[in-house]
Amino acid sequence: MRLILLILLLGAFVFADAQGGSGAILIQAKPIKSGDQLKLARKRFYLFNGGLKENAALLDRIKSAAFTSRDCYYTQAKASPAFMCWLQAENCDGPFCRPVLQAEIAGVPEFDAAYKKGLTLYKSKPALALSWLINNLDAPLVAGYYDQQRAYVERVLGGLKPLQTTQATITAAEAYFVDVPVSDNGQKYLVSTLIPVELGDKSFVWTCEVTDLGPNKFLSKVPLPLKTNAKCQVTEVKQQICKTEACPAK
């Protein structure tokens, strides 16, 4: 059970600004797997007013919403096995993740077709056909997965407006909320990934309460547990499993 070994270390440091009336929250998202540190890099986080109790309806929607995993999305979009292997090779969500190399084109039917289309459109300029390849891919393979994630977020939000959203950094997997209003009356906030994070063939949403924002705090650590506790819920979401073809070793 790989997932048993996965650990999410989500630490929140809170810089509070009493006089300015605002502070900042720093989220650190670093799963640990068999001693190797993985990171929830580039994942978007959402900030809400209120704690877990005040956002119970949101948590219910997270628990009940059906999520389409990346592999299921691309299977349904009829992507070729080679295209899916290209994504999986660097665990990419879509073709915006990294440049398509010239050497990869012939092996991926979608890339090959887009490249040839580009050669026609751009007056046989190979560099342009390669660099602008995304323009000539079928739309569902370009931003379709992103679009369905956005639709998923809208469903889960159910009309609720996040105060802010932010994105985790790439190497350190840290996400910052700045200009967060601070008061001395025990203001609570909720941070959530909302979009499930795929780990193996399961997906999880982390939703955590920040309770110790206060006017006299410069730095408040909120160590988060491996499993759901009073301040943090780690929710496994419903998802269909889609088996894909085995990919060649790199």
Partner: peptide
Amino acid sequence: HQDLIASNEQKTPFAV
């Protein structure tokens, strides 16, 4: 644009 260039866990370490 930041979201769209996002990916899952990256297997190859690199600095942005």
